[in-house]
Amino acid sequence: MTATIELESVPFIQKFKLIASDNKTEFIIDEKILNQSAVLKEMMEIQDKSDTEITIPLNQISAECLGNVIKFCKHYEDSEPYLPPIGPTACLSRPSQSHWDMVFLKSLSSKQLFDIINAANFLNISRLIDAGCFRLGYMTENRTVEEIRRIFQESGDFSAVEEEQIRNEPLWN
């Protein structure tokens, strides 16, 4: 009797197997983690449930990066769905440096950080995209234009005259 109740009360949890770009490294995750990615969630909605893991190959994401993404999502597996801040006041809502997200992202190298943001964008995990962007925002703090170029690996293409023109343009800055 008790055994039956137990069986009924345990909900079916679909497992997924993500395979990284090296075709070797596998991550087994459940719905709570998968659903944070809008892309994968949408993909899996049309998929039938299966007793075994559903395999999803992610050729674009390296094993190391995918591990980091899953680590982040695991931290939020039981949280409320994320609502991104919008509008011109969005910059006022940035998390403090001691926030878990910021500490986690700070522990990554800049290569790892850039990879995780691109991967989050690819998988459309809005919480991770925003956290990454906030972290990038902190990295631009008190930097010169030249330093920002170096951080983001962007090359400048303005002439000195044009640069001066843009510099003088805003009335308030």
Binding site: A90, C91, R94, I129, Q153, E154, G156, R167, P170, N173
Partner: peptide, 27 residues
């Protein structure tokens, strides 16, 4: 360029105006 425009928009969304004015000079 490491980041797609889409991501850059999201980064800029969270930056204060004085940093944005610097970012305009990047390229």
């Amino acid at each position: 360029s490491f980041f797609a425009n889409e991501i850059m928009i999201n980064v800029f969304k969270f930056l204060p105006r004085n940093v944005l004015d610097k970012c305009r000079l990047v390229n």
